[in-house]
Design a protein around this nucleic acid. Structure first.
Length: 586
RNA sequence: GGUCCCGUAGCUCAGCUGGAUAGAGCAGCGGACUUCUAAUCCGCAGGUCGCAGGUUCGAAUCCUGCCGGGAUCGCCA
């Protein structure tokens, strides 16, 4: 149950009654009523600005309208009082019975509490990571990976049918570079002294095993071939090996994609899907041969005027039209990506979401244009941009250079820091804000670390339930039993504050899912943890407020219901973020 | 030069798509451990929401223009 929607429905009902009674103009359209928890608890449990929103349309003064709505609302049992404040706010105090019902609902619904039907089963394709298969993943990939994965969980939790997809860029020039690098490692594996890696090739040790595989499977036969003969063979083997590596890296972060879509597959088996996609656009009159203006502001010696095949992306808000064919006659990366998205659309997805790194931000308008053009605007398309992660150690920036091969790999990060802190910290920031990630701070299992703070709240709740079993061996502390406890005993202000916060979980999930912003969950969980810890602290100062009240099994049962409900919400929330919820942290 | 993102407490950041007196953590100062696990809690202090206009009952939030920081700018991917 979602208290916010519940109150919104009641207000909506009140407005309709007012229209029937002709106290409110019947011909005005009623907007969706938004309710919110006021910042100041003195303003009640729920607040609505509906009177101010409608005042102009209704031709009435906000406070007069608010008064009419308030009268209709108070007949409802779940509403205790309605005050009118300021310019026309409805400040609503809920009956305690509703908080008792929410607590019971959390316990009875368990992991289902907060699930929503927002998506109504809509087919969502969520593409994330899509790192080039040219080496192991480094920390730069990490944020988008975690973000995409958590967003996928969040969308599933809110009723979407989500496919987690990885676009494998196994067709471009970088795969040739990979293959040439692997070929050198192959010769090395055969005993040849290759010296140091030539400039422009990948120097990392991770290609040595690939060289060995090539030596084992092909012996010396590759050495006797010309480059155009061995290149396709080595490309295939090397890129497959790199994808195996990447899959292991992702698994270390508990990330598992449903689909790995190969770029090169689109032009294989005598069927050129890229050509098909371009033809589809051509039929819409969006393809032409022309010249692009030279970009201003930076000198480019290599620039030459050239007629080329262009996509009219400016029709859809892009700055310039975009090239589809390179000067060597092959497709541009963009052409392939158009075809890939055309493919997604043809597979029946109605919602496409891409997670980009900040370095691809300039790619956003043309991709948006392409999807609009291909779908005639019928696809819900969103690109989430993850800003860069800056690594620090003891406050000092960690310098990385891919060319020198000294970049920090994702695996090293996970092994040093642990999955949970990595995942949580990557989400403990808005995706489009830059993120500073300090090894030493995140490794430190201290108060400075929000992950442990939240996890500790969960462990603490679990601990209370264990201890209760010792204090009252006969008590049934299963969620279903606790849901039946006399919850009217929950009357302390701290207890009520906690319940009210927990009751906001379903609404928070809705908002985060709509906005595609999983970080909201991380901040919410921090707040839930804080509120639980705070109530614990009150028990330290005032023993009669402790969760386990040895003098009264009844009071204890009601408080355990609250503790168990808190544990459940934290567990569900952390589950969406892909972070463990430990029973104990001793 | 074009486009996009960011600018909120000393530092790191939230701010629920326009609401009421702008919040949290860290750092600083002062308190609470024979504990329902102190990985915690309580208190104090800290602000021209980059600047200037505009939109309206109401702006950190939306629009415009500046200032500062970052990303990116045919044929790489």
């Amino acid at each position: 149950m979602n208290v916010y929607e519940h109150v919104g429905d009641m207000i909506h009902g009140a407005l309709k009654v007012l229209q029937q009674e002709q106290k409110l103009a019947a011909d005005i359209e009623l907007p969706k009523v938004e309710t919110e928890a006021p910042r100041d608890p003195a303003h009640g449990d729920m607040a609505s600005n509906i009177a101010m929103v409608l005042a102009k349309r209704a031709g009435q003064k906000p406070r007069d309208l608010a008064q009419l709505v308030a009268e209709k609302l108070t007949v409802n049992d779940d509403i205790q009082t309605v005050d009118i404040a300021g310019p026309g706010f409805l400040n609503i105090k809920m009956s305690n019975s509703i908080w008792e019902r929410v607590t019971a609902a959390i316990l009875n619904q368990g992991p289902q509490f907060g699930r929503a039907q927002l998506g109504e089963g809509a087919k969502v394709n969520l593409e994330y990571v899509s790192a080039n298969p040219t080496g192991p993943m480094h920390v730069g990939h990490c944020r988008g990976a975690v973000f995409g994965d958590a967003l996928a969980n969040l969308l599933e939790f809110s009723g979407h049918d989500v496919a987690r997809e990885y676009y494998v860029n196994d067709a471009g020039g970088q795969i040739d570079v990979l293959a040439k690098s692997a070929y050198l490692r192959y010769r090395e594996a055969l005993g040849e002294d290759i010296g140091s890696m030539p400039e422009g090739l990948y120097p990392g040790d991770y290609l040595k095993p690939v060289g060995q595989i090539l030596a084992d499977s092909h012996g010396k036969s590759l050495k006797e071939m010309d480059e155009d003969q061995w290149l396709p063979i080595v490309r295939e083997i090397a890129s497959n090996a790199m994808m195996d590596l990447i899959r292991e890296d992702l698994a270390a972060l508990n990330i598992h994609h449903d689909v790995f879509f190969s770029e090169s597959s689109m032009t294989q088996n005598g069927h050129d899907q890229i050509k098909d996609a371009i033809e589809a656009l051509r039929k819409k009159g969006l393809i032409y041969e022309g010249q692009l203006p030279k970009p201003k502001g930076h000198e480019d010696e290599e620039w030459e005027e050239r007629e080329q095949t262009l996509f009219r992306s400016t029709d859809f808000g892009d700055d310039v039209d975009r090239a589809l064919m390179k000067s060597d006659g092959t497709y541009t990366y963009f052409a392939g990506d158009i075809a890939y998205h055309y493919n997604k659309i043809k597979r029946g997805y109605t919602h496409l979401i891409n997670v980009f790194g900040a370095d691809h931000i300039g790619y956003l308008p043309r991709m948006t244009a392409a999807v609009k053009a291909l779908s005639d605007g019928n696809i819900d398309f969103d690109i989430k941009v993850c800003q860069l992660v800056k690594l620090y150690r003891d406050g000092e920036p960690v310098r990385m250079s891919k060319r020198a091969g000294n970049f920090v790999t994702l695996r090293e990060l996970v092994e040093e820091v642990g999955v949970d802190p990595v995942r949580f910290m990557m989400l403990y920031r808005k995706n489009d804000a830059p993120l500073d990630f300090d090894f030493s701070k995140v490794t430190e299992q201290s108060k400075d670390n929000p992950v442990f703070y939240v996890q500790y709240a969960h462990a603490r709740a679990a601990s209370v339930l264990r201890n209760a079993k010792e204090a009252f061996p006969d008590m049934d502390i299963s969620p279903s039993a606790l849901a039946k406890a006399d919850l009217t005993q929950l009357s302390d202000q701290g207890e009520l504050a906690l319940i009210k916060l927990l009751s906001g979980f379903p609404n928070l999930v809705l908002g985060a899912a709509r906005a595609h912003e999983p970080h909201r969950l991380a901040f919410y969980l921090y707040e839930v943890a804080s509120t639980l810890h705070k109530q614990w602290g009150r028990g330290n100062d005032s023993p009669h407020l402790r969760f386990i009240h040895t003098d009264s099994q009844g009071v204890t049962a009601s408080r355990l219901a609250l503790v168990a409900a808190t544990q459940q919400v934290i567990s569900s929330g952390l589950g969406i973020l892909g972070v463990q919820a430990p029973e104990s942290m001793r």
